[in-house]
């Protein structure tokens, strides 16, 4: 019956309008953040301080995860390659998997759950405890003083973390392939060196990690700034940061990969 369908249609309409409105607010928020970034660059210490909290404190989880992912790649890669008698190409497999895909994506996911959630919770709690209002009453713009330094810190940290993840992964692959299994060390490194292209592989991986850094930090900051100022509101915003960032990373990865490999 058409009458019965009205509430459902209305609900869909409301949800769609809410989504579009939030996207609009988020777009306005990032534009404001970029426009109010002058203070951050004039007082670079503000960014350095945030790089410590978002980047340096994420190092442990990034390095340990990178090592283990690399070691697992070493085992799995060797198992597959030896079927074709190509175990000497283990270094190539490990390096390409990491710099093209696993490095940026895994580091992005870990960054979203470690640093992204922390940023959202911090900003959300600052809002709930009126710290942002207090700052505004002191004639200090919270976007310039609180949001922009965190944005640039996340944006700069993410590619470095992805690079460290990949480097630790390659080392993990070396430990398993060369030290544990006994693949020839010379062919492990030399084949890796000749097969990994700087522009095609490394630069594309860096571009991905830069895009992920931008997306995760933007989402984390917006969710915190937009969180209802209650315990429930902040916890919901933190969860949304992790879920939305993770989905954004996976979606963006697919899009970027399809652009980068369109000539193949």
């Amino acid at each position: 019956m058409p009458e019965r369908a009205v509430p459902s249609i209305r609900r869909i309409g409301h949800t769609t309008i809410d989504i579009v409105l939030r996207l609009g607010y988020a777009a306005r928020f990032i534009v404001l953040t970029l426009l109010h970034s002058g203070t951050s660059f004039r007082r670079f210490g503000l960014i350095i301080r945030e790089i410590y909290y978002t980047g340096v404190l994420s190092l442990i989880i990034i390095l340990v995860s990178g090592l283990f992912v690399g070691m697992v790649l070493g085992f799995q890669g060797y198992h597959t390659l030896q079927t074709y008698g190509s175990e000497s190409a283990l270094g190539v497999l490990v390096a390409l998997s990491l710099v093209r895909e696993l490095g940026p994506v895994m580091a992005g996911l870990l960054f979203a759950s470690r640093a992204g959630s922390a940023i959202t919770a911090e900003i959300g709690l600052m809002k709930a405890t009126e710290q942002l209002s207090a700052m505004e009453m002191m004639a200090v713009d919270p976007i310039a003083r609180v949001v922009a330094p965190r944005f640039w810190a996340g944006f700069l940290s993410m590619p470095l973390l992805a690079a460290m993840f990949s480097a630790m992964g390659v080392f993990g692959g070396y430990l398993v392939g060369v030290v544990l299994i006994g693949v020839d060390e010379g062919s492990f490194w030399s084949q890796m060196q000749s097969a990994v292209d700087f522009r095609e592989d490394i630069l594309n991986g860096v571009i991905k990690s830069v895009v992920f850094g931008f997306a995760v930090t933007w989402i984390a900051l917006f969710e915190g700034y937009d969180a209802p100022p209650t315990a429930e509101g902040v916890s919901g915003a933190t969860t949304r940061t992790v879920v939305t960032s993770s989905l954004a990373i996976l979606g963006l990865d697919f899009m970027l990969t399809s652009f980068m490999f369109r000539g193949v």
């Binding site: 009126e130 207090a134 009453m137 004639a139 003083r145």
Partner: peptide
């Protein structure tokens, strides 16, 4: 607002700054 001061209901101190830095905040800004 630079010529106004406001005391919030629960203080609204910046939790990542010490007492000294909280009071110095506006002077530095």
């Amino acid at each position: 607002r630079r010529r106004m001061g406001m005391l919030f209901q629960f203080g609204a101190l910046f939790t990542d700054l010490s007492v000294f830095d909280n009071v110095a905040f506006q002077m530095r800004e």
